[in-house]
Design a protein around this nucleic acid. Structure first.
Length: 770
DNA sequence: GTGTCGTCCTTTTTT
DNA sequence: AGGACGACAC
């Protein structure tokens, strides 16, 4: 088990129980170390499987950990506390729902549910959604929760913030009434449960002796506090992460947690995994050189014994269309050379870039697969079906109620719902409980809907889950609705897939044959597990499905659907080029990788240039992108691209200049960032025109003249790369130009004032160089 | 209740 | 440019 590890890996795996920080570079065997550490602790008798807690960020990572662990040890991993932060907190809250002051069958809101609930709250409170856009209020609420702050604890400095706090309060009250929790609430509630409830806290502190954390650099403030609290009883924290791969600051992740953890816990126990088993020399050295430009790193230098390999290829094309065409031609060549398409990844900084690339691949009939986008449980039709199922479980879930009360249509209009909503408001009850008080015709339709849900609830006591799902699809009218809908066949297919998913779930979780809505007696095998809090002994070895303890198959399935939104890719197996954002590529690897749009303003993204921390995160993002490649890496850029319906001109990314030239092989002219028209027509690969067609006799300039000759405003001619002086902002360099004539704009990187976009017709600029 | 038109936005995203 | 969503009209 540990013989095959290198020295650093082995020292991490076999460390005596104590706090430790493992700095695991890209491709250094991070997951392997984590799972082998668990297996080693168990096998050497230092820990029982039930005294371990391993936490990850994604379900995929958790599944992989489980799979590898059970491959290494002949133990039943079922019931072990291995999961995502959210999944484990869900477990905790399910097991102690009373102490956490939650209804037993609380539902979990996904982002979409959360938004519609917020909209409802804002509407109900008569809030001006110009001043308080629902999305922004949600950002505020989620931000506060991720810092562990309830409305009372939030510091509000001005009237606007005080108002936001008030909306936070209102939103939270609505969640409580509905018996629902959002994702951030899962964590905060679980944290508060442990913090406030001594017996529960002590129970888990005693139970978990070893806490293992994956991707530690992605933890936010609350997650870190949660870990510290759980470990406060003497458990050891084994934290694995890579500060150079921290790319989620924008959603609350705090790399600072790593340095803080080192200071507070692992001052003397930092282990670096620096041997990279993935990429060849030039690729790895490029990544190292790039990331060295970041400050405040914990520090580490990856090396490989796999040899130099090939240099990183760079291609600069006049337009995004030609960039895409170039990528396609190269992919075709790789394919002809015997490479599998699935071993080729095309990466981009932003999703908007994918269209041009997709189009080019599609025209060339190269199979490709785009990652990202809607996932299974987020599809409209699936969410509708789930809403019915949630109402069976929890009639007070107003979000679900509103979602399907009139879908498929059953003559319940806005008028009736307004009436219902008013009544519910007056009585302080949920919509469904207000139904009996609605008079007139609307009352009748509402009563019929209520009866439909009641009937489904009855079936849930008899039918096993898959049959119940099927029953709901039929009796809600959803199936019929989508059958009649033209273009509805995909949706019908997805609904059938939902029945199938229920089937699989029930089998996997040993719920087979049980009525969907019934909670098992606590002594049955499936329900066995946690002792009541405060009881010293932790049962070991027994079946231990405490994840779903006390839950009906239906409630468990709904939790699962909320926490695991499903794959966000379609059919696997087909040999296709893999397309995704750089973020989505984290954790993956490919033989050949194309990083596209390597331009200033796009990568690094212009929004990140304002603060240094933003630029450093972009650099880490590029580091992640580069380290995805095993054998061959391409960096491609375009001098012009369509963005927001306007052609934009850009220069090559500063990151390109941070990679030593000896690792790069320019396939297009290195100097002269803007190709002249002559270069364009006689360029390295003049195989296509700007629209992807093979060139015909007369070749039109592919790039508007402005690219080569700059933008003319009055008597001044501006070019990319030019040095300019502004009265207020000082000296800077033009990094991008757009538009023409009177509405021409320039993006200028000022030396001290940061990057600004200025209208050339308005701003008085002095040309100082270039 | 459904369809059409206009308006808005557009970095990255998991749970 | 292009997609999504909301308001308005039939």
């Amino acid at each position: 088990m540990i013989e095959q590890l290198n020295a650093q890996q082995r020292s991490a795996v076999t460390l005596s129980p104590q706090h430790a920080l493992v700095l695991a570079g890209a491709g250094s065997g991070k997951t392997r170390v984590l799972t082998t550490r668990m297996a080693w602790l168990i096998q050497t008798g230092q820990a029982s499987p039930f005294s371990l807690l391993a936490v990850t960020f994604t379900n995929k990572a958790a599944r992989e950990m489980l799979a590898r662990l059970s491959a290494q040890l002949p133990i039943n991993t079922r019931g072990m506390w291995i999961g995502t932060f959210h999944g484990l907190c869900n477990r905790l809250l399910r097991a102690h729902y009373r102490d956490a002051n939650l209804p037993q069958s609380f539902q979990i809101l996904d982002t979409g549910d959360q938004l519609s609930l917020m909209k409802r709250v804002l509407k109900g409170g008569g809030v001006d959604d110009e001043k308080f856009p629902p999305k922004e209020v949600l950002r505020f609420v989620n931000g506060a929760k991720e810092r562990g702050e309830r409305p009372d604890a939030v510091e509000a400095w001005d009237a606007h913030e005080r108002h936001l706090v008030e909306l936070y309060r209102l939103y939270q009250a609505q969640c409580e009434r509905d018996g629902v929790v959002d994702f951030a609430e899962l964590l905060l509630r679980a944290f508060e449960l442990l913090q406030r409830n001594g017996p529960v806290r002590e129970h888990y502190q005693r139970r978990f002796r070893h806490i293992l954390v994956d991707e530690f650099q992605d933890t936010n403030a609350l997650q870190y506090r949660w870990l510290k609290l759980l470990a406060a009883g003497g458990a050891s924290i084994f934290a694995v992460g890579d500060d150079d791969q921290s790319i989620y600051a924008f959603r609350g992740a705090d790399v600072g947690n790593m340095a803080e953890f080192q200071r507070e816990y692992a001052r003397d126990t930092v282990i670096r995994l620096e041997q990279n088993y993935r990429s060849q020399g030039h690729i790895l050295d490029s990544a190292n050189a790039l990331i060295a430009h970041n400050s405040a790193r914990l520090g580490k230098n990856l090396w490989t014994d796999q040899g130099e390999g090939e240099p990183v290829r760079v291609s600069e094309q006049p337009s995004d269309l030609l960039e895409a065409q170039w990528v396609v031609d190269e992919i075709r060549a790789l394919g002809d050379g015997g490479g599998a398409y699935r071993e080729i990844a095309v990466l981009y900084r932003s999703n908007a870039q994918s269209r041009v690339l997709e189009h080019a691949l599609f025209s060339a009939r190269i199979p490709y697969k785009v990652y990202g986008g809607l996932r299974f449980f987020e599809r409209q039709e699936v969410k509708h079906a789930l809403a019915y199922l949630r109402l069976i479980e929890n009639p007070d879930d107003d979000t679900s109620w509103l979602r399907v009360v009139n879908f498929p249509t059953r003559g319940i209009g806005a008028r009736t719902l307004e009436q219902l909503s008013d009544l519910a408001g007056q009585r302080g009850c949920s919509l469904s409980r207000a139904v009996p008080y609605v008079a007139g015709k609307g009352g009748g339709s509402l009563a019929r809907f209520a009866a439909l849900i009641a009937e489904m609830r009855g079936e849930a006591q008899i039918l096993p889950l898959p049959e119940l799902v099927d029953h709901v699809l039929v009796h809600s009218g959803l199936l019929a609705y989508y059958r009649n809908e033209r273009d509805g066949s995909d949706r019908v297919e997805n609904l059938r897939e939902l029945v199938n998913a229920a089937q699989v779930f029930v089998a996997d979780e040993n719920f087979e044959g049980l009525p969907a809505g019934r909670v098992l007696a606590s002594d049955s095998p499936v329900a066995a597990g946690e002792p009541p809090p405060g009881v010293a002994a932790v049962p070991e070895g027994a079946a231990n499905d405490l994840g779903w303890r006390g839950l009906s198959p239906l409630a468990a399935f709904l939790s699962y659907a909320a926490l695991e939104a499903g794959e966000n890719q379609a059919r696997l197996g087909q040999d296709a080029v893999q397309m995704m954002t750089v973020h989505a590529a984290k954790g993956l690897e490919f033989d050949s990788v194309f990083i596209t749009g390597v331009e200033d303003g796009l990568f690094p993204h212009e929004n990140s240039l304002l603060e240094p921390a933003g630029l450093e995160e972009e650099r880490r993002l590029m580091y992640v992108a580069i380290t995805r490649a095993r054998r061959r890496l391409y960096l491609t850029l375009a001098q012009s691209r369509m963005l927001h319906g306007q052609t934009r001109y850009a220069i090559r990314s500063r990151f390109l200049d941070e990679i030593p030239p000896e690792h790069l092989k320019w396939l297009t002219p290195r100097e002269g960032r803007v190709l002249s028209d002559v270069d364009v027509t006689l360029g390295a690969r003049p195989r296509r025109d700007a629209y992807g067609r093979p060139p015909t006799g007369a070749i039109a300039p592919m790039v508007p003249r402005t690219s080569a000759n700059g933008v003319l405003v009055g008597d001044q001619r501006f070019r990319i790369g030019q040095g300019v002086r502004h009265r207020k902002f000082g000296e800077g360099t033009i990094i991008a130009l757009s538009g023409n004539g009177s509405d021409a704009q320039a993006r200028i990187q000022f030396r001290s004032a940061g990057a600004k976009t200025l209208a050339l017709g308005v701003a008085k600029l002095e040309i100082i160089a270039g």
